[in-house]
Amino acid sequence: MNGLFEPFQYEFMQRALLACAIIGFTNGFLGAFVVLRRLALMADALSHSLLPGLAVAVIAVGLNPAGLLLGGLLAAVFVALGGHLIARSSRVKDETAIAALYIIALAVGVGVIKYAHVNVSLDHFLFGNILGIGDTDLWISYATSVLVLITVTLLQRPLLLALFEPSVAQTQGVRVGRLLALLVILIVLTMVTSLQAIGVLLSLGLMVLPAATVYLVSDSYRRMLWGGGALGAAGAVVGLLLSFWADIPSGPAIVLVLGTVFLAAYLFSPKYGVVTSRFRKRHFHEESLRRWK
């Protein structure tokens, strides 16, 4: 029985668990916007485009957390902006333009990282290594999370207007373009902070899976935000413990935990579950009539 609580005894593990809770919450919270705005594939592209930024940052300033944050941020914003520009100035549509840029960026990243002469393997960037998290990393995660959560909470009303119906929002005085650009920047910031935990390739999971899960079980926008955050935090913590017990990398472990919950919601959600709806009692005519009225 002692083995179960063993991870809580180590300081590096306590630190990692705290980081996971913070990162998981922020990702899950912001994920609601990604799911509602159907930005999942765009967010995926952004996460992959972080790699060259990280590689260049490592070459330039070494394994400095602030440098990594800045490098990743710049690379992702570059891909998002560039994709937007290409889409506007040619017949290529947004998704294609961003896909083209991010895959180029990923290739650059994988190529360049060989020249980063530090003792860190590509695996850590691709799949995360939460146990290596240092104090500075933790503080950066903490600060970013607070910044993102405050911004999003403050702008909740205009964001809701812009996400639901951009043109109506615009007539109501919401600057939709700027707001969505800000949202992309927040998404990138949040992703960069989760890199340490789950890496470039899987960071999308922490952002999209909690919100998608809550979307399957709830009809409330607000519950999607806070529920997504709570599920993200819980999933990240449980995933980290799983990685400790099963001795697998933290990134895949976290995504597997959240993925299992997502699939369970898809199948068994009380209202929208695929299996549950099969077993729902057919209602009688009176009941239909009552619902109709």
Partner: peptide
Amino acid sequence: YVPQREAVDWDFPITVRGLVEMGRYPDLGL
């Protein structure tokens, strides 16, 4: 402005009252 019905994401998790309340947001501010 009332957009065409097809332009709206009707899967958005919001009730009718919530939708109507959105009309008040600009007056309410942040």
